[in-house]
Amino acid sequence: MNIGGGTITRAELMGIRQGLQVAWDLGVRKAILRSDSKSAIELIASATTSSPHFQLVSQVRRLINQEWEVRVEHTYREGNVVADYLASTGYNLQVGVHLITVPSPMLQHWILFDLVGNATPRYMFQ
């Protein structure tokens, strides 16, 4: 998905909303929502109404509260390489939602990478 601009948190929340909607429409009734955006996860979990993203967060919450099981988790970017790869490639696509029905060889590589749980180093600078 390419939203065309805005803040990182807005992009993360829009991606979460769109992903939940696609999963619901496909008939998924048990899902794990993982995001490397700690701020997006905290907004979804909090009861604050003062966020500039309140309307978008409300839409995400409505989707989560439908008749299904959705577990919301924070993960580091290195823990979800597929999402990071898709976000990077989506940036270069036209504005809008793009559904991938057949993964490219590179996407297949990253899916396998995530499935086997390969560790990648996380560099922390002081």
Rank of each mutant, 00 (worst) to 15 (best):
I3Y: 02
G4P: 04
G6W: 05
T7A: 11
T7K: 03
R10P: 00
R10A: 12
E12K: 05
R17K: 15
Q18L: 10
Q18F: 02
G19P: 02
G19C: 05
L20S: 02
V22H: 07
V22I: 15
W24S: 05
D25I: 09
D25G: 07
L26G: 03
L26V: 04
G27W: 08
V28L: 09
R29Q: 14
R29T: 08
A31N: 04
I32H: 07
L33D: 04
L33R: 01
L33P: 02
D36Y: 08
D36W: 01
S37V: 07
S37K: 04
S37T: 07
K38W: 08
A40S: 13
A40L: 03
A40V: 04
A40G: 04
I41A: 04
I41Q: 03
L43H: 04
L43M: 13
I44R: 00
T48S: 15
T48V: 10
T49L: 10
S50Y: 12
S51T: 11
P52K: 13
F54T: 13
Q55E: 14
L56N: 00
V57M: 02
V57H: 00
V57D: 01
V57W: 00
Q59H: 10
V60R: 00
V60D: 00
R61L: 11
R61V: 09
R62Q: 15
R62M: 09
N65C: 12
N65E: 14
Q66V: 10
Q66M: 13
Q66A: 12
E67A: 12
E69F: 07
V70G: 03
V72F: 03
H74Q: 10
T75K: 03
Y76M: 10
E78D: 11
E78G: 10
N80C: 06
V81N: 04
V82M: 05
D84H: 15
Y85Q: 03
Y85R: 03
Y85H: 09
L86D: 05
L86A: 07
S88F: 02
Y91I: 12
N92Y: 10
N92C: 09
L93D: 14
L93K: 13
Q94I: 08
G96M: 09
H98N: 15
L99A: 08
L99N: 07
I100M: 05
P103Y: 08
P103W: 05
S104H: 06
M106I: 11
M106D: 12
M106P: 01
L107S: 06
L107I: 06
L107G: 03
Q108R: 13
Q108E: 14
I111W: 01
I111Q: 05
L112D: 12
F113R: 03
F113H: 11
F113W: 08
L115A: 14
L115S: 13
V116A: 06
G117V: 08
G117M: 05
G117W: 02
G117F: 03
N118H: 09
N118M: 12
A119L: 12
T120F: 09
P121W: 03
R122D: 04
Y123C: 06
Y123W: 14
M124L: 13
F125K: 14
F125I: 15
Q126S: 14
